[in-house]
Design a protein around this nucleic acid. Structure first.
Lengths: 235, 235
DNA sequence: TCTAAATTGGACCAAAGTGGAGAATTTATC
DNA sequence: GATAAATTCTCCACTTTGGTCCAATTTAGA
């Protein structure tokens, strides 16, 4: 709320934010992430969020203006965390081979998507039909994240590590296999018995993704680009 | 509402359902599918559904008892349609090779998931956290669908067409790549420019899924079963 | 055609949801 | 410690929601 006043001219400097305030905000953000990822935007009431956070609901208005702004703040918090984790992981392997870096990316993604499933769940809740929130989500967080990754994928295709085809599509497939699956953990646990809370299961998922998408025995994308539809089984 | 009275003893047969009634029910079901897939269960009001259907909202109570029952009826309608499409497709290739059948399955799934994205969207809305509705969904529709598919996948692994690893996990990955992606069509269109309303894009997706998951140059699952974690890249 | 059952429409309710105003209470700063 | 800003709490006004009730209307079946 108070961040736009650095003018040192004559304005008396505003009193700084109290400590209890940031605590309240953190509690609200955490509760919002959880609630929104379960019920979606429309399906979540501000009172529910306030209850989960253990604070009075008018505090949402005070700290975040309204439900919409709270949603955005919550989403931003998740993505910031994830970006930090990702950058950190990739920095470690800055000079490794592209394939190795892809592997690191997948493992980091899988790991984070498990510990914070809301990262994907909130997207799922919002992305299945057009809306202003979706546009904001894409512009603010999704595209900046996707663009560089797709570029890397393109490289991997050129050296035959990744399968041919539209790299953007390929990335979406990988995303679906990683985050998409982990967002459905409760369903998958019941239907298949696979429990991603067990580290082995998580590792197996990462292994399979890497094996399937980066096995490294694909044709390089040279003249093949056009006739991407393998065979004419296109029924 | 009237289905439990077949006793031919002395009960006078009940007058049959009027035609306009089934029209109303169909309109409500279609509207419910659309609305629930966008807003989730909690996020959708019965009034919204009634408005979309162009009928008065108390009719929901009359025809479906309550919101919960309407949801179940809507989900059942979707799955029934899909199962019919699937059975029909596979019947055509009853005696084809396993790989061909897998391909047909993928193409049918992709096609249906595109024309009726609610098939996957409703699952996504519901499956990200435990609930009674999720349990019902799994028992009634998901498990009966998954079980035979996983068995087929196992065969494909044994002949080296599909990659090794837990077949259930493999299936979930395929599902994520097909239905999962198509459920996010609006997001993907904005972020990547890929428009699944164009048949070529849809074909490319199906092609890539088949190429990645059923390329057919995988090791057969013989003694490998136990140490499913391929290589020791397990960092 | 007549009549009773099936279906629909309109009014209504209690509960829950939203945002906000203003008093009351902390707490940073002097 | 005093004071004013920052934060929290109490209460309210308004809308939405799931659902009920019953009168009005339509339709199946004689």
């Amino acid at each position: 709320m108070n961040s736009d006043n650095g003018r040192g001219t004559d304005a008396k400097k505003p009193r700084k934010q109290q400590k209890r305030s940031v605590v309240t905000q953190q509690k609200l953000l955490a509760a919002a992430v959880e609630a929104f990822s379960e019920g979606g935007f429309k399906g979540t009431s501000t009172r529910d969020i306030a209850d989960r956070a253990g604070v009075h609901h008018p505090l949402i208005t005070y700290h975040f203006k309204n439900k919409d702004m709270l949603w955005r703040a919550a989403v931003t918090a998740i993505f910031r965390e994830f970006n930090i984790a990702l950058v950190k992981s990739l920095a470690e392997f800055e000079h490794s081979a592209p394939r190795k870096r892809a592997e690191v990316f997948v493992r980091t993604y899988v790991k984070y998507a498990h510990q914070q499933p809301a990262l994907h769940k909130i997207i799922l809740q919002e992305a299945s039909h057009p809306s202003e929130r979706l546009d904001w989500l894409i512009d603010t967080h999704l595209r900046p994240l996707f663009t560089p990754v797709e570029a890397s994928l393109k490289e991997l295709q050129q050296i035959g590590v990744a399968p041919p085809g539209n790299p953007a599509l390929l990335f979406q497939m990988i995303r679906g296999c990683a985050g998409g699956l982990l967002a459905l953990a409760p369903e998958i646990k019941t239907t298949t018995g696979i429990d991603f809370d067990e580290p082995e299961a998580l590792d197996e998922l990462a292994d399979m993704i890497i094996n399937v998408f980066f096995s490294g025995n694909f044709r390089t994308v040279s003249a093949t680009t056009a006739e991407s539809g393998q065979q004419s089984t296109t029924q």
